[in-house]
Simulated scan of single mutants.
Amino acid sequence: MQNEWTGSVVIVTGAASGIGRASVTAFTQAGATVIASDIADGVEAVAAEAPPGTCTALRGDAGDEAHVAALIAQASRHGTLRGFFANAGITGGLVPLSEADSAQWLEVLRVNLVGPALAIKHAAPVIGTNGGGAITCTASVAGLRGGAGPAAYSASKAGVVNLVKVAALEFAGTKVRINAICPGLIETNMTKRRIDQARAAGFGNMVGSTNLSRRPGQPDEVAGLALFLTSDAASFINGQAIAIDGGLTAVHPQTPRPAAAQAAAATISRPTQLN
């Protein structure tokens, strides 16, 4: 049976590291050809690591419309464009709302929100003409609730959550599905410095402790979700923002309890078996 990805091209932005890099690996291993985009130098190295002929790097700014159009054109030279993972994003720095200036806001919104909008604008008509496929945008748990990131970053990710809903409606009936993924704490270059600091200070066990899985996520776990959402297996998922956060947004905030208290609580809450 033919691999569903044979002859298919997927564009991945923010591909030089973290979730984007892991996604390039996931898509190429699945059999797709990938156009990898990033403004960082490392995108060429990511393409070189992929199996020969499966990945082409195109360096550029995901928030620049000319670059997005160039990605679509490049994809057409390598096969049938079937997916676009609009993953590129920036934090804009941990700047309090009272101190962030308009330039910082505009830059974060340009990359994090306008970038995915441009991906949808240029890719959706082509994917629809090609017979269908999917566009997945990286949002964040910071776009679902406050307290998970600085103001501009959080607002931009909330915008992505709504963007995919509006876009899915606009392209309804075209066989183009548009969804967002909302990662929680993922161990990437964006979070590495703070995670390393916590571990160096002896608080490594606290990293990710506010989610139900009690750990940070890994880029390949998010890449797996991006691959699934782009595949035929997700053919009935459209206009959704799916959290991948270890259960962080499933419950109200919890204070981690000592192991003894956790064991006692588990004993008390364990249901009685009925024979």
Rank of each mutant, 00 (worst) to 15 (best):
P253L: 00
R82D: 03
V111P: 07
R199I: 10
P125W: 03
A15R: 13
G202I: 12
L248P: 02
H122D: 05
N238V: 10
A226I: 15
Q104I: 15
P271N: 12
L94S: 13
L113R: 05
V24Q: 08
A243H: 12
V160K: 09
D245M: 05
K192A: 15
V222Q: 13
I120A: 09
A226Q: 03
G128T: 00
G42R: 14
F236A: 05
E170T: 01
G247Y: 05
A40D: 14
G63W: 07
F27N: 11
I178E: 04
N205Q: 13
L169S: 09
I242M: 08
T191Q: 06
A233F: 05
P271G: 11
E65H: 03
S98M: 13
A50E: 03
Q2C: 01
I135D: 02
A88K: 01
T230G: 11
V166M: 10
D232G: 14
L163P: 12
R215L: 02
A139I: 10
L274A: 14
L274G: 12
S156C: 02
C137N: 09
I181W: 04
R59Y: 07
G173D: 00
G31A: 05
T210K: 12
A123R: 01
E170I: 02
A88H: 09
G246W: 09
P52K: 09
A62K: 12
I127W: 08
L81H: 02
L144V: 10
N112P: 05
I11H: 13
P116L: 07
T56Y: 12
A139T: 05
P271M: 10
P96Q: 08
E65N: 01
V141W: 12
R77D: 14
V24I: 05
A264S: 07
A152Q: 05
R199M: 00
I181L: 13
A172V: 01
Q197N: 10
A117P: 04
L58S: 08
E221G: 07
C137K: 03
S209D: 14
Q2L: 07
G7I: 11
F171V: 01
A123Q: 07
A57Q: 14
I39C: 07
E221T: 10
V164H: 01
A148T: 06
L169V: 06
V46K: 09
T136D: 10
R77L: 14
G159E: 03
A62T: 04
H78M: 08
V207R: 10
G217E: 08
A69W: 03
L106T: 13
T33N: 09
I19C: 02
T91R: 02
G204W: 08
C182H: 04
A200F: 00
H122G: 04
L274D: 14
N189A: 15
A180P: 11
L169I: 02
S37W: 00
V141I: 15
